[in-house]
Design a binder for these strands. Structure first.
Lengths: 211, 211
DNA sequence: ACTATTAGACCAACCAGTTGGTACAGTGAG
DNA sequence: CTCACTGTACCAACTGGTTGGTCTAATAGT
């Protein structure tokens, strides 16, 4: 257990993130790690298996380093959601708008080519949407009743992925920041409008930070 | 002038749309068209040049078949925007949620690999954003004043691309439909809130269809 | 001595791109 | 009319290099 398998997965993760799965060759990974081919195929029965391992590795890392710290905090559900969006933006910014979202990349690259990857990626996106839904649901008391929170959750995923795409193609975080600001504005509006409806007044000023 | 160049571009466009640019081989295109390799390189000096030709072909087709009919109509700017979103959704639905947006695909695949493609794609996304901005600007009389329409335009692009991504990975139009419904809801809210602000009343019920 | 691991030679298929050439339609000169 | 020439369109065979994957032999740890 020298962690060589982990080493391969991490190198592959970096390469796949930038070059895509199909365009990353086993040799690329071998070169980056110094591991020899026979050894690689001792740890993975195929490049495809490595691909799945990369996906699992990435989602676990994401949960550990990004999700858990926020979800474990004692903030309100709504603020957790906001902080999550901010964290994701910061992550893209710090990467120099390179790579983008590994799942988004792989989804567009592989959904029409490989049903296995597509299904796994679909689950992951569904998981993200479900997470947002739970956070919205938890904030439901302060949100409008006449809006489908499942839809809003899906919309957050889309706005996020779209924002990441724009940051990547512009090589600039601004477009993503703009998208997230509008997305948050929409979510805040969901609260304000509700507050107005509930109180019958619209003079009550904002709860918490708005925009 | 047998249109053989066009024939190559169209076949390549289909293949690149599904398989991605890097993963589409010249031989794939040759096989699909029946054209021989020597002849291919008579029309294109490289696969890269073909890639750019595919992008130009696709954007022209998009303008001709999707944009122009809507923009040329005598509808209001706001309704044009709404119809554009509906058309884009229908397009994805009719394709069986295969392929997705060629530009989105290429943006994620190539932005970190090929600066030339990245720049061209960036221009195209900027063009889309500018178009949405113009339509919003034209509707400005009935929209809120305290919101940056450039940001909203960027947000529309992101919501759209994110929605297309979700449809592709779910192989189902529903997630995209949900996203666009929420996006439209946001845009309509931009109008309603404005109406409220202008009139000083919030009792005035909705203008047009909401949600 | 046995098992887990490592090394790297090797393979057929595939990759983008090149080569040297043919077929042919048009054209200008004599 | 005809012959030499020109540019466009086309093609089969090939190049050097890369692909994912296999095989066998050597080595290290117990």
């Amino acid at each position: 257990m020298s962690g060589k398998r982990e080493q391969i997965i991490e190198a592959a993760s970096d390469l796949v993130h930038i070059k895509g799965f199909n365009h990353t060759s086993v040799d690329d990974i071998l070169q980056k790690t110094g591991i020899k081919k026979g050894n690689f195929y001792f740890y993975f029965k195929s490049k495809e298996e490595l691909g799945f391992a990369v996906v699992e590795h990435y989602i676990e890392q994401f949960r550990r380093e990004c999700l858990s710290p926020i979800l474990a905090s004692d903030d309100t559900a709504f603020n957790k959601l906001m902080r999550l969006l901010d964290t994701l933006e910061m992550e893209q910014s710090e990467s120099g708008c390179c790579g983008g979202c590994l799942f988004g990349n792989m989804a567009l690259e592989l959904s029409d080519l490989h049903e296995g990857f597509r299904k796994r990626l679909q689950e992951i996106f569904q998981g993200m949407s479900d997470l947002f839904y739970r956070l919205l649901e938890e904030s439901a008391g302060e949100l409008q009743k006449d809006v489908d929170l499942r839809e809003v959750a899906q919309f957050i995923v889309a706005g996020l992925e779209g924002g990441i795409m724009l940051a990547k193609v512009h090589k600039n975080i601004t477009p993503m920041r703009q998208c997230l600001r509008q997305l948050k504005r929409y979510l805040v509006l969901l609260r304000l409008k509700s507050a107005m409806n509930n109180s019958g007044l619209n003079t009550r000023s904002e709860r918490g930070r708005v925009q």
